[in-house]
Structures are given as C-alpha cells and as structure tokens.
Design a protein around this nucleic acid. Structure first.
Length: 1038
RNA sequence: GGGCGAUUAGCUCAGUUGGUCAGAGCGCCACGCUUACAACGUGGAAGUCGGCCGUUCGAAUCGGCCAUCGCCCACCA
C-alpha cells in the first residue's frame, strides 16, 4: 500500500466526517479522497477471487511504461476502465481489474542511461550489464510506485494483490514458455536484417521509435569511371547521393533495364494526374513533366548505352577504394530520379539491400557500432560519418570526379530517444514467422470473436496483419527478457543429445548460416559447460518489449499453469486502449492468446480518443504541453478529472484540451501558448508575480512556487460535483425525523411521479449508452438529469412539502430514494463524492426504498446498480410537466423583461382549455415558489387584461397584469418582433403545405403535423396581434 | 502515395434511424448573495451547420467533388 494512503483504517472514518449540521457549502474533494480510498481498500472491495456463483467481468490494464509519471492520456484510459469495472461490480459481476506496469525496454534503459550520463558522466559500458540493470530496477521500483499511487489517487479499483510487472517471475515464466514453444515449432528463426542503428545508444531501434525530420543537406553528383570504356561509350557513370561516405560500401551501380519505357510511363502517369489536379498542383506537374521531357532528350541516349553495357556485364571502378563493382540492371534505378543511375549500398540502405539480395551482391558493412568507419572503409577507417563525408567529397573533388553539388532538403530519420540520425545497418536478428499466427489473429476479428469498437479501427488491424511481415523480436539492450538461446559452434549433435538426455525442456537446432547450434531452454539457465568439453555462449540480446506485452492477458493470470484464475477470468471481457497501439499491441495479444491458450484474449476492444492541446497537437513531455493529472486532481479533485474526461469521450472526436497555468499566487489561469509553455518561469499577468514551471532548473527559478498545469475544461466537472454535493446537502438538512415508509402510487404528487419517471428513463439510457461504450452520452444524460431536473425542479418543488407535517414523510422518502439512485448511477464516474454522500445518507436514512425497503450497503461501491422499473415510466406525466416548465419559463420571462423586483409577487392569467386550467391550478404553489407568481384567472373565458405583458405558447396564452408597471415601448417592440417572426414561419409553412408534391409524397402523418403547427402559429399570431393592438390603444388613451 | 477522421454560436463540443433539432457548457449582456449551492439562480443576445453539385416533397443529417486541419501506414539515390 502506498505511503500517501497509509491512514489509520480502524472504522473511524465515520467520525472523521463532518456531522450533518456543519456540512461544508463547498465539496471538499481532498477530504473525501483521503477518507474513502483507504476505506474501500481495507474492506477488500478491489480484490477478486474466482467465484462460480457469479459471472466474471475482467479487464487487464494496458500496463503503463515505468519510464515516468502518468499523463492525461493514461488518466483517460484508466478512468474509462474504472467506470466499466465499477458499474459491473455494482451489477453483481465478479469483477477483476488486473493492474501492472511494463518494463518498456529501450525507453526505460534510455532514460536511465541519460540520467547516468548527466549526473555521473558515465556510459552503460562503464557500469557493465549487471550494474546497469540493477540501476534500472531501482528506477523501476520508484516509478512503478509512483504510477500505482497515481492510479489509486484517481480512485482506480484495481486488484492490487494481483499487480504484475512484465519482468516479474510470473510474466517471465510465460515469456520463457512461449519462446520455447515457438522455437520448437520452428516459428522462431535467426536472420539478417537491415535495422535502424542508433550510434549514440549503440542499439537497434524499432521503426516506431524513429522520427523523421527535414534537414538542410546536399545532393552530390559523382562520376564513377567505367573500366576500359570502348570507343563511343561513356567513360563515366554519374550518380547522385545525399550520403557520399556510403560509397565506400557500394557494391554496384544500377541502371534501369528499360529506361525509355520507364520515362514514357512516368510521363503518362503525370498526364493522368493532370486531368484531376487543381490549379496549384498543375504547376508542379508541369515542371515534373518538363523534367521528364528533358531527360528523354538529354539523358536517355546515355542511359540506353549504359543499359547495354550493363547487359554486357561491364564493370565500374569504385573511386577512392579502387574496387571493381558491376553495372547491373534493376528496376529500382528509376530514370526519372537523380541521374537515372543509382549507387547500390546493400549494407546501409533498405532499398539497396533488396537490390543486393536480388543480384546476390556482396554486402559490405562500413560502420562500427559507435558510428565510426571500420576497416572496410580503407583509409577512412576510424573517422566519424561526418568526417568521412567531408573527406570523401574533398578526395572526389581532387580526383575531378565531383560533378556538382546541389542544396536539398533531406527527410532524415532520427532516433526518438537519442535524437541522433539513424544509420541503417545489416545485423543478425531474431524473428517470429508470422504467416499462420497473423492469419489466426485476422480470423478472430473477421468472424467477430474479437469485436473492435468503434468498428472502423478493424480495418487498420486487418490491413497490418495481412502483410504478415515477420516480427523482429531481438533488441540490442540490457533491460528486458534476455533471449533464452545458447550458442555452441563446436559440439556434435550426439554430444548435445547426450548432455541433455531426458530433458524435454531443452531443444536445439543447427543454424546453417551461423554454423552453430542454437540451444533453447524453457526455464532457468544452461551452464557454460553443460556439454562436456565445449563452451556455451548465451545470446546477449533481449526480447522486444511487445513480446511480453503480447502475453499480458494470460501471463498475468498465471499461464502456462492452468490456474483457477486463468480458467475463470480468461478470456477477459474488455480491453480499453488507444488507437496507436492497435497493431503493435492488440494484434499481438490476439495472436499470442490464440497460440498459447487457444482462445482470444478479450471479447471487446474499446478504442478511446486521443487528448490534444489547444492547437490540436498531441501532448508530450518534450513539447511541454502535457497536463499532469496530479495537478488536475490537486486543483479540481479526482472526481472532476474523471467526470470531465468521460464527458469528453465521444466516438469520433479526439479531445481538444486547452492548457492553462494556474498562478500559485492569485490562482487565476494563464493560457498556455506555444511560446510560454517551454519557459522555466512565468510572470502572472494578473498579479504580476513570478512562478516556476516544470522547466525550472536554476535554483532561483526552483525557489519560486510552481504553477499547476491544468485546463479550464475541468471546471464544468468540478462545478457539477459541487452541485451534486449541495443537492445532497439540502436533502441531509431536511431529513430530520426520516422514517422509512411504504408508499403507494396514489400518495405520490405530480412531481414525484415525474421525477421517478424521468429517473427510470435515465437508468435505461445510461445502461444503453455504457453497454455501447458511449461514455460522453452517459455522462451527459446524468449531468442533465441531476442538474436540470433533479436540482432545478424536483428539489425546488419538494421544499414546500418538507415544511408540511402531513406531506413531509412521503417527500422525504422520494427525495432520498431519487438521490440514492442518482448517486449510484454516478458512482462509476465520480466515486468519491458519491461515497461521501452515501455515507452521510446512511447516518440519517440507512433504510431506503419506495414500496419495499432495504438497508443501504456499507459502501456505495458494492451497492446494487439501479434497475429501471417500467411501471414508474409515465410519458403522459412527463408531457404535462413539460407544459408546466414552459409556462413557468413564460412567467419568468415576463418578470425579467419587465424588471419586476425579485420580491414582488405578480399575478398572471392564462387563457387555455379547462383541462389545462385545472392542471395549472394544481401547480399553484410551484409558481409561487419558483417564479413568485400566482395564477389569478384560468380558463377559456379569460380576457386579456388591459395592461398586460403577454407570452404565447401552443394552446396557451399567458398574461401578466402589470398596470402601472408595464414598460409599454418594451412590450410593443417585443410584440412587433414576435409578429414578424410568426409571419415568417407561417409563410414558410403555408408554402410547404401548398406544395402539391409535399402533400402527395410526404407521409400523411407529417402533413397532418405541419397542418396542426400552422393552425397553432396562426392562432398565436391572432392573439399576439390582439395583444399588440390593446397595448397600442392604452398608449393612445393615456 | 494509401487509409481514417474532423469542419455546427467568440471558444470547446453534442446532434441515434433525413420531417419544431438548430442545442449544451464556457465566455458575453441584464437582474439577483431568495435559508442546498455566487463553483449559484433567472432571463437575454449570438450560427445561411466549411464550399459547390446532386438524391429527395423535404438535407446539419444521405451521395459526389473541392477546400482546410489532424491522425495512421508506406516511401523518398
């Protein structure tokens, strides 16, 4: 358990709560959070055990990297999971949410190495493998703790007893068993591959750890001499390159086999594009076409001659090294690019590698791991890439082989971690053959065993898998699962078989290319001298992080052991994640689950939005635009963080989140901009005092108070929590003498039936939305019900009855019941404030219900989820109520526009049908209470008072007699506006109804509705113009 | 280059199956500290739903094209 939550848990929580009489007016989120999380945890609510009596509902957390603290994206991800989990728990499922963290191979190692360098000026080689790994473990412990605490602070109801880490013994066992099985099945192999080499970290980085950046560079044109040119033949081949130094590794020059056709095709292609291109694009196309025509005129003859020379098997002399290299024919040498001829460096360029394979060219690696040139570079050995580049260019120039240099923007690959340029390099790597595995994973989604939500994301998943590219799994790192392979070059198969006789946990295979035995062991290690007379050498590389992540849903449950957990909880129910790891992670979990367990890892995958800043950019630490969930919780509370995020989780949109600094002095917000977000200190424009930001490094900056980084978008949620708190506060202050009573439907007042009907519908709608992962919709429904209906109407209306002894008991019972149901519905979203309310309610109204009663659960967390009772659903009452609300609004509008003093009671008269009149009559006290207004005269015979403000509603005319108070001009203006609006609408409707097409083709019901609307509008017009007439007359008389 | 998404009030966003759906919150204006709540209440102003064309009796909603923005994948001697 975390330090932050080490609180005395001895059943004294109740005593720490404020008593009903001094409930604070503002909800104190800090107090509630500190009080209830330890309470839940101590009661063991988070813990789950297989329980055959219940259905399981399981989520495994996408394990956050132990690289650093959680960001807002994590907050979103985990909020949504907790909402699902808490609701299912209340619904009676046996819910398990497995928490954990990911070792995140290169990312974590890089962070620790960077710190090692900054603080101690040491590299990992100074420390050695064991010591570095020990350092990373220490780092991991610190950050894992921090991450888990953040999750707890957010209220996440994970089963902490089952916390896993991708490098812990449980996960390690799964990794080893998986690797061993794949090895035995022949699905793991060793091969050559061109990798992204990071010369600073001296490691391979994966494609997704590479970013591209445009840098200013050059395009050098070199001439390579042709060996023994015949008369009339070109004496040189001209090539162009952005990387002159790589020529030292050249093993061929390629030319296109059909240059004329290729150029022809390229020009046809451009012409085709021309037809659909816009003005602007056409200019570009035109110059490209022009270029091709020029090539056809000037370059083509030479290319054709070179092509012929290539078919003739002619050779080129590679300058500087004086190596003989062939002139080859390959489609890769596009005549519309560069000089039409291309140098081939198979060991240092992905495309050239393919060419090299096709032509079986030698592959010459010219680089050392640290980015200096090796012996293959001849005289340039030992130089850095940049030094070699300069020297090669200088020497080529001296040899008069440099034709020209052009400036050019180059899209250069950089390592995400070290920010240094990537060198493509040919190395030995381990792979998993994907053909069959990928197919299994595709089938699982195609046939619906795994459902991806929203469904559009299935396409990317299927497309990516359908390429069935083998998965490179080795990484030249020290932090991770070391590949369980031992090499032996010298032993014979008999010796190996003898040494490992009877061991079914060891397998071996001859590696023809490496001329060595590959020996794999399922668990533990093999001693160096396990084979008498020979030495075994262990593979140093570790596995790709995603290898262990792929096993997460079953490894965390104990696989390969057939644990009760695995049998009960697997397949898990839902995976909640973001779209950028659908392929890297989701796809691999599906295939690993199918391969290892034989079942899909989860039934549904919910892909949630990404959080962007005000500029629509993704948030990141390096950009400085990240919002820290801890800051948000400090300022607004965990519930507000959660509620706001859920409120923003719509299906199609990413979440745009303007970022603000909070001035620590005056607590006002300062908008974050691209400029100010990277500064170490800022001056508050309101109070003109300085504060520090996350970038503060200098002591004088760090000494300043730090401004929180938050977003104003959490205010809505904070206000909502406070509103809810105050509604509860109202109830608590009015529950004196509460006793549970059985209530018959007949005892209920209109507002009771209305609010119960609305509640019933809300339960249905929230259930519906959440089943479909429509978090924003569920949140919105609850927000609007709680605020606009429960608080603004029900609570207001019940006030009077709470003062009447005869009506008090029923009013209390309904009030408590609706509040009870509302906080249950809200609990998954805002667990702390709802628990706070729940516990307060338990003190004054422990037994609640309408017809039947139940003692409330000791925590809302384990209280049953509300059920919609169809019998409470009363559409007619809702309709009546809607009319009341409109009328109330009309009266209020008159008050407001006539500036009637707030305390002054006004009378109003209503012309309407007798039925409506009697309904309005019943609502009398509410008009009094909510609008300081009194219905004086009601019915069909009511005449408009001579001095009146008037509002017209369908079938209802409302007048307020304001003799002496009326602002005539105001009222006249208003009426005129209203009349012109009505005229416009009437004209539109008439035109529509006069259209024979409409009358014929539209459904009869629609036509009828339009007809009725028109009649209403015309009636309103009549009344309004009469009212206007009357006011005008009054004016004339006076 | 391939794919996906977005464009609705000053800002951030809702709008299920085409027919009172033009909405919310913030911001703004006016009036209110009315004994749950000023983190509040009441009322108000504000948008030719990115543009064009089509389908339809009828389009924010369906189709096509264009523009702008964003994301993913591939590629760039």
């Amino acid at each position: 358990m975390s330090k932050e939550y080490r609180l005395e848990v001895n059943g004294t929580q109740m005593n720490q709560m404020a008593s009903t009489h001094d409930l604070p007016k503002q909800y104190d989120h800090h107090a509630a959070e500190e009080r209830w999380y330890p309470f839940w945890e101590s009661r063991g609510y988070f813990h789950s055990e297989p329980n055959p009596a219940k259905k399981p509902y399981t989520i495994v957390i996408p394990p956050p990297n132990v690289t650093g603290a959680l960001h807002l994206g994590h907050a979103l991800n985990n909020t949504l999971q907790d909402i699902l989990i808490r609701r299912k728990r209340m619904q009676g499922f046996e819910t398990l949410w497995v928490p954990g963290t990911d070792h995140a191979g290169i990312a974590t190692q890089a962070v620790v190495e960077r710190r090692l360098w900054l603080e101690e000026r040491k590299t990992r080689h100074d420390l050695g493998r064991a010591a570095l790994v020990a350092r990373i473990w220490a780092w991991k412990d610190e950050y894992e703790n921090r991450i888990l605490n953040q999750l707890k602070q957010m209220g996440c109801s994970c089963d902490w007893a089952r916390t896993r880490f991708t490098l812990d013994p449980i996960c390690t066992q799964a990794v080893r068993h998986t690797f061993f099985r794949l090895f035995c099945e022949g699905l793991i192999y060793r091969g050559k591959r061109l990798v992204n080499w990071d010369t600073t970290l001296q490691t391979v980085v994966s494609d997704d750890e590479v970013f591209h950046e445009q840098v200013a560079g050059h395009f050098w044109y070199f001439k390579y001499p042709v060996i023994d040119p015949r008369p009339g033949e070109p004496t040189h081949v001209t090539i162009a390159t952005t990387r002159p130094e790589t020529m030292l590794g050249d093993t061929a020059v390629a030319v296109h086999p059909f240059p004329a056709q290729a150029l022809e095709e390229a020009s046809r292609d451009l012409e085709r594009k021309w037809t659909t291109a816009s003005e602007r694009e056409r200019a570009e196309l035109e110059s490209a076409l022009e270029d091709i025509r020029r090539r056809q005129r000037e370059l083509l003859p030479e290319l054709i001659r070179l092509r012929d020379m290539a078919s003739d098997g002619r050779k080129i002399l590679l300058p500087l090294l004086n190596r003989e290299i062939p002139l080859i024919l390959d489609l890769w040498a596009k005549p519309e690019m560069g000089t039409g001829c291309v140098k081939i460096t198979p060991a240092h360029d992905p495309n050239d590698y393919l060419v090299g394979q096709r032509h079986e060219l030698p592959m010459i690696n010219i680089l050392n791991p640290d980015g200096t040139l090796n012996a293959n570079a001849g005289p340039y050995q030992g130089q850095t890439i940049l030094e070699a580049r300069e020297n090669v260019v200088r020497d080529m120039e001296a040899a008069r082989l440099l034709v020209k240099v052009e400036d050019r923007l180059i899209d250069l690959a950089h390592s995400d971690r070290s920010k240094t340029p990537i060198e493509p390099m040919l190395t030995d790597q381990w792979f998993i053959a994907m053909a069959d595995l990928a197919q299994m994973a595709m089938d699982a989604v195609s046939d619906g065993r795994v459902k991806i939500i929203p469904p559009r994301y299935a396409k990317g998943y299927l497309d990516w898998l359908s390429e069935k590219r083998d998965w490179p799994i080795s990484r030249q790192l020290w932090w991770g699962h070391q590949i369980p392979i031992w090499y032996c070059e010298t032993a014979t198969e008999e010796e190996i078989a003898k040494a490992f006789a009877g061991r079914d946990d060891i397998a071996w295979r001859w590696d023809e290319e490496g001329k060595q035995w590959l020996i794999c062991v399922r668990e533990g290690e093999i001693a160096e001298d396990a084979i008498p007379g020979h030495r075994l050498r262990r593979e140093e590389d570790v596995l790709d992080t995603w290898f262990s992540s792929a096993l997460w849903p079953h490894s965390t449950l104990g696989w390969p052991d057939q644990t009760p957990e695995l049998q009960y909880y697997y397949p898990t129910s839902t995976l909640v994640t973001s779209r950028d790891i659908i392929t890297l992670w989701v796809a691999r979990m599906v295939l690993a689950g199918l391969h290892n367990v034989g079942k899909v890892p989860f039934h549904e995958v919910y892909i949630h939005p990404k959080i962007l800043d005000a500029y629509g950019e993704g948030m990141s630490k390096s950009k400085g635009n990240g919002v820290d969930p801890v800051d948000v919780m400090e300022k607004f509370g965990a519930d507000s963080l959660r509620f706001a995020l859920a409120y923003l989780t719509t299906e199609t949109q990413d979440i745009r989140m303007p970022v603000d600094f909070e001035c620590p002095h005056c607590h006002r917000f300062i908008e974050q901009t691209r400029e100010n977000r990277v500064l170490p200190r800022l001056r508050c424009p309101h109070c003109h005092r300085d504060f520090a930001t996350q970038w503060a490094e200098k002591p004088e900056d760090k000494a300043l108070p730090r401004g929180l980084v938050v977003s104003e978008r959490f205010e809505v949620a904070r206000n909502f929590c406070n509103k809810l708190w105050n509604a509860a506060r109202f109830a608590l202050l009015n529950l004196e003498g509460y006793t549970p009573i059985s209530i018959a439907m007949e005892q209920l007042e209109l507002e009771d039936r209305w609010v119960l009907s609305r509640l019933t519908r809300v339960i249905q709608e929230v259930d519906d939305a959440l089943e479909q992962y429509r978090f924003a919709e569920a949140t919105r429904i609850l927000y609007e019900f709680a605020w606009d209906e429960f608080c603004s109407f029900y609570v207001e209306m019940v006030k009077a009855r709470l003062q009447e002894p005869g009506k008090r008991a029923v009013a209390q019972a309904v009030l408590v019941w609706v509040l009870d149901q509302l906080v249950r519905l809200l609990h998954p979203f805002v667990p702390f404030v709802t628990e706070e309310v729940w516990q307060h309610l338990a003190k004054v109204a422990p037994v609640r219900g309408l017809e039947s009663h139940e003692k409330a659960a000791e925590s809302i967390m384990i209280a049953p989820w509300p059920k919609a009772e169809p019998k409470w659903c009363k559409p007619q009452i809702e309709e009546e109520f809607r009319q009341f609300q409109e009328l109330l609004r009309a009266v209020r509008e008159i008050r407001s526009r006539q500036n009637v003093p707030p305390r002054q009671m006004i009378d109003f008269t209503v012309r309407c049908s007798p039925e409506t009149a009697s309904k309005i009559q019943k609502m009398e006290p509410y008009f009094h209470l909510m609008a300081k207004a009194r219905p004086a005269e009601l019915g069909p015979e009511v005449k408009a008072p001579t001095m009146a403000a008037h509002v017209s509603l369908p079938g209802v005319e409302v007048y307020v007699d304001l003799a002496g108070l009326i602002d005539r001009d105001q009222e006249i203006r208003r009426k005129q506006q209203e009349l012109s609006r009505l005229t416009e609408m009437i004209d539109k409707k008439k035109a529509k109804l006069n259209d024979p097409q409409f009358r014929q083709r539209a459904p009869a019901a629609v036509v009828e509705r339009e007809r009725q609307t028109l009649a209403q509008l015309e009636e309103q017009y009549k009344v309004a113009s009469a009212a206007l007439e009357q006011i005008l007359q009054v004016q004339t008389k006076s």
